[in-house]
Design a binder for these strands. Sequence first.
DNA 1: TGTCAACAGATTGTCGACAATCTTGCGCCT
DNA 2: AGGCGCAAGATTGTCGACAATCTGTTGACA
Lengths: 220, 220
Amino acid sequence: MLSPSPNTDFVVSRTKPAAADIARTIVEELEAGEFVPGQRMVEADLCLRFGVGRQIIREALQRLNAYGVVAIEPNRGAHIIHVTRDEAVMTLELTELLFGLVSRSAARRVSAGCDSTRLSDAISELVASSETDDPAHYMRARRHLFAALSLIADNPELNRIMEQVRVHVMRAQFGFAAFRSGHAQELAEIGQTVLAGKSEEAEDLSRAYVRRIREFLQQI
Amino acid sequence: MLSPSPNTDFVVSRTKPAAADIARTIVEELEAGEFVPGQRMVEADLCLRFGVGRQIIREALQRLNAYGVVAIEPNRGAHIIHVTRDEAVMTLELTELLFGLVSRSAARRVSAGCDSTRLSDAISELVASSETDDPAHYMRARRHLFAALSLIADNPELNRIMEQVRVHVMRAQFGFAAFRSGHAQELAEIGQTVLAGKSEEAEDLSRAYVRRIREFLQQI
DNA sequence: TGTCAACAGATTGTCGACAATCTTGCGCCT
DNA sequence: AGGCGCAAGATTGTCGACAATCTGTTGACA
C-alpha cells in the first residue's frame, strides 16, 4: 500500500544501503541522542523510514543488539537500552583500561618503526581544532586520533571492542551532558607521547584522561 | 528440491531453534575446534544442517560476525576468521585487563554485601574438580566461576565484552594446544580472594593467571 | 461492578521466490 | 599455446506473504 516498487524507478546505480549502512546511520543518530532510552524500534516503522524491507532492518537491529545499544526480546521486538549513570561510570572504568592498552600498544609499535603519518596528521588536526574552537571540528579530530591509534595498535580484537564501547561512551557523554570540548590539548599530548614511543607514559596519560571524564560524571 | 516441508511432520511442539540457539551451537563447536580457520560458511549448507531457512542462518552468521569469529564480505559470504599466534597473544593481553577488572569489581561488590552463594558454589565445584581430574568437570567449573564473577561484578558492558572475548580465548587455547587443565587450585584461590572482598589482591591474582597463560603461549 | 475469556489489531518469526552478484569453466580468437 | 570474453552454475541480497505470538479491548457472566 505504500511502495509497490521500492527501488526501481530512478535508482539505477544506487550503491545499495544494506543493513550495515543503516546500522551505522542509527548508531550515529544514537550518539547524537536522537533516540530516547526505552524507545521501541518497530521494524515496520524503520522500513518506511529507510525504504527497505524488513530483513534489512532486522539485520541492522541485530547488529545494534551486538553493540549492546539495543535489546531484543523474542516476540517482543527491540528497544533502546537505558543506561544508568552508574552503568555509564562502569563503562568508563572499562574504557580507561581499553584506551590505556591502545595507547601503550600503539607506542610500542611506533618504537618498532610502524608508519605513523596518520597519527601525526590527527595531532595536527587536534591542535588546529583547539584554535578554531569549533566543536564539530574537535570531535572529528578526536575521532581521527582514535582511529589512528587503533590503526597503529593493530590489535583486531581490541579495535573491535573499542568500536563497540565508543558508542556507549558517546551516548553517556551526550546523555549526561558530560561532554566537555577543550580536551584537544590533552589528547594531542597523548598522541605526541605515543609518537615518541613512550608506552608507559602514554598509557598513564590515556588512563588519566578517561579517569577525569569518569570522575566528572560521578560528581553530577 | 530438498526439503518440501522442513519442520512439520513430527515436530509439533519443537521449541523452535531460532537464530540465537544456532549461533550458540556454532560458537560451542568453534570452541571445540570444529571449524577450520578460513573455512567458508555457506548459508545453504548450514540450512540443511540445522533444518531452518536462510534467514535464521543469516542472523546467526551476523551474530558470529559481531563476536568477531566470522568475517562477512559483501556478496562473498562468511568464513571463519584465522587468528595468528601474535593476535592470540594480543587478545590475552586484553583479557588480562578485563579479567582483572571483573575480579576487582566483584570483590568490591562482595564487600558491599552482594549475594555470593553462586560464587561459593563455583569454588566448591572447582575444588571438587581438582580432585577428580576430569577435564570436562574442570571446564564446567571454570565456566561457572566466570559466570559467578560476572554476575557479581554486574557490569553489563563488561560482561557483554567478556562473553565475546571468551570465545577467542577458547579458540586460541584450543588452536595452539595451550590448554592446561589443573589450574583449578589457582582459580579457586582467585574466587576465595574475591569472596574475602580483597579487590586489589583479586585483580592482581586474576591478571597473573591470564599473564601466565599468555607467556606460555608466547614461548611456543 | 469486577473478573475473565475471546476477539481484533499490531508486531515479530519464518519461509520460499526472485534478483543481483560472484565464480568457474569452456570455447574462440590471435 | 595463451589470453580473453562469455555463458552456466553457485552463492548471496532482498522482498513479499503467511504463520505465530503478543497486547489491548470489549463484552458476557457471576
